[in-house]
Design a protein around this nucleic acid. Structure first.
Length: 215
DNA sequence: CTCCCGATAT
DNA sequence: ATATCAGGAG
């Protein structure tokens, strides 16, 4: 099937909506604080692994003040299995300090403030906006980036390019849903390695069917 | 562009 | 044993 630019976005939106009708984070959390911790740990780590770590961690730390108080060593040990634990522990403690000092111990609900917090980049900031505050956000992680490339929505594998392309071709009310669905599809069907093109609902409109194994 | 790091699949 | 996965900072 050959589609013009507007139609490929609308086809993706409609077809993936059948598979992923509900937006539900793969990270377990009950409060904005918990999501903040989880999203920092989720950098370069699977959500499943993060969940096993936070299950125990959230019994011990329940606020930015708790995070500020816990010793670096204790925190590093608790999050060790998520990888990059020196960086993440440092980010969490510096981030907590920053939020206490500049945002009255409350996670901000706008991008410009979130991105200033140490340890939060674009992906994490937008994830907080979408999952915690139900605001419009385009969360470009490695899955979304990969699918945008395979579906030829972008020529450059750069997150900001992907954000721009989605924002100018999808209605704002669907931004978060669109990036969410690409993410879910990337985890399950359009995987980095050995994508399941045969069972893919988009295989007739995907330029990379059958020839993709990475990139 | 390099560094940071463990877990899992092969 | 080794390749692959998964973001942010400097």
């Amino acid at each position: 099937m050959v589609l013009n630019k507007t139609n490929i976005y609308s086809e993706i939106l409609h077809r993936l909506n059948i598979l992923y009708p509900e937006i539900k984070s793969n990270l377990n959390f009950n409060t904005p604080f918990e999501f903040y911790v989880a999203i920092v740990l989720a950098a370069q780590c699977t959500d499943e692994k993060v969940n096993t770590v936070t299950k125990e961690l959230f019994k011990r730390i329940k606020s930015f003040e708790d995070l500020d108080r816990i010793s670096l060593e204790e925190l590093e040990e608790a999050i060790h299995s998520t990888g990059f634990y020196h960086n993440k522990a440092k980010s969490l403690k510096e981030g907590a300090k920053y939020i206490i000092k500049h945002f009255n111990s409350t996670l901000p609900n706008n991008f410009n403030d979130l991105i200033k917090i140490p340890g939060l980049g674009r992906k994490s900031s937008y994830a907080i906006l979408g999952y915690v505050f139900n605001k419009s956000a385009i969360v470009v992680d490695t899955h979304v980036k990969r699918l945008a490339m395979r579906l030829a929505l972008v020529k450059k594998a750069d997150p900001i390019t992907v954000e721009r392309e989605i924002s100018s071709n999808v209605e704002e009310k669907n931004w978060f849903k669109f990036s969410y669905m690409l993410n879910q599809h990337g985890r399950t069907i359009c995987t980095a390695k050995n994508p399941k093109c045969q069972e893919c609902i988009l295989n007739d409109i995907c330029p990379k069917v059958g020839i993709s194994n990475n990139k």
